[in-house]
Design a protein around this nucleic acid. Structure first.
Lengths: 242, 242
DNA sequence: ACAATTTGGTTGTATATACAAGTTGGTGGT
DNA sequence: ACCACCAACTTGTATATACAACCAAATTGT
């Protein structure tokens, strides 16, 4: 068998979800319906549904049906709290200041991370995230224009880049590194640090099926931010670039 | 059906692995053998093997058999590179200096994290991990003596605490937070920092089935260490304590 | 009008069977 | 000694079937 039947059904369902034909929390065909549509036994259709459930793509309830899960938990690697949600979950006021949103020639190091060539056009955004008007995080982000051509026309006061990108390029995964750094003057200024203090810098590279989407440097003062909860450190996947 | 048959088989297999009857990389019964032993169909036995494989407990090879996976990847939350392996993977020399290994009365904050009471006895170890004789990480660890009574008699020059604990209390999960901190004089001294610089502090709390096992503070200079690869940030599980 | 029951659809568990595909080790021929 | 082949065993895929557990909505009885 060239490719297994249950895998074909999974591919079909994933594509339906990806193009938006089956939105979040909508019902997907039942085991019997899929079995008939694909001319397979119920057990085979069941396997497709089962595996998508294990991957967090669907959720199922006995006696009711199978449904599309919320996209944010699509890939478990993307279960990252959006900083806006995080702040609001603390009952504080979130706001953001857009400092820059342009196209610029791609620096070498960014090019290799995004699979572009040096001086190819790349989108760049610089945003300060604030919690109760106090700077919490400086976000510098490079975005692959081949994958997200409309990036520079977005309004990032109503939506963070992470939210927008999750919408545009779903079903992605992410790669992270965490460093403790000494902020430069520029960073100090935008984080309103009176004197320099240790900062946490999270470097996040996200991927869609078609390759790297964006590279973000998220810098936060150690005194105002910590990475919490469950962190799962897995072996580095060998990806092209970097 | 009170409890599903496939779940009973899983429980049995897990217990065999936990007590060491089936060591790492040893063969476990085949689908047909399990089916006969438990008087179930092959498909039911298969399901038990399948789910344990998905959980990373077993690995299987078509035509060969099913085997116990390396314990360190038991819970995906424990796929943390041991610092010794990490250093050796870079082709460098790993060594460690044990500074302290004692029993002491439990500080309040540690007690709540480990489910003990203030001033209950708790084991404490302090270790410097070195890469090519350069301090890479200062490890301060509190260990629950109820779960690991022999902790203070171990030889941590040949084995890191993390390795030892993984052996003693397998099938655990871990909770992490990452902070950027400004090291105190004590930390500076043991990390041989001429002048203070931002440090990454990873706080790691590990759990076995019976509760919290240990709480470790792993502090590394930002200039010598970064947390890399794939990090998976999941929502904080509500655990007792802390 | 209200409550109890039935009905139909859904997922969950389990079985028996068949064949495909991969690995290992032995068997026999050269 | 070496190679080709085969047999036995393993996991992987797929089917047809049966019944259990559960839920929601329709039906029925009072």
């Amino acid at each position: 068998m060239a490719v297994a039947k249950f895998a074909e059904i999974k591919e079909f369902m994933l594509s339906q979800i990806e193009i938006g034909a089956w939105p979040e929390h909508s019902r997907v065909p039942s085991e019997n319906e899929l079995a008939e549509q694909f001319s397979v036994s119920r057990m085979t259709a069941r396997r497709a549904l089962q595996e998508l459930t294990e991957q967090g793509i669907l959720y199922r309830t006995q006696g009711v049906g199978s449904f599309v899960a919320a996209l944010k938990s699509q890939s478990s690697l993307l279960e990252i709290r959006n900083i806006a949600d995080e702040v609001e979950a603390r009952g504080h006021a979130y706001s953001a200041r857009l400092l820059q949103l342009t196209e610029l020639p791609c620096p070498t190091i960014i090019a290799s991370a995004l699979g572009l060539r040096r001086n190819d056009p790349v989108f760049f955004s610089l945003i300060v995230h604030l919690e109760n008007s106090l700077p919490l995080q400086l976000e510098a982000r490079y975005v692959n224009p081949l994958q997200v051509p409309d990036y520079t026309t977005q309004d990032f006061s109503s939506q963070t880049p992470h939210q927008y990108l999750s919408l545009i390029a779903p079903l992605t995964e992410a790669e992270h590194t965490v460093e403790a750094i000494w902020p430069d003057d520029f960073t100090c200024k935008h984080l309103m640090l009176k004197k320099a203090e240790p900062c946490l810098r999270l470097t996040r590279r996200t991927f869609s099926r078609d390759g790297a989407v964006s590279l973000a440097y998220l810098t936060s003062p150690g005194s105002r931010y910590r990475l919490g909860g469950h962190l799962n450190f897995s072996l580095p996947n060998s990806k092209e670039g970097i």
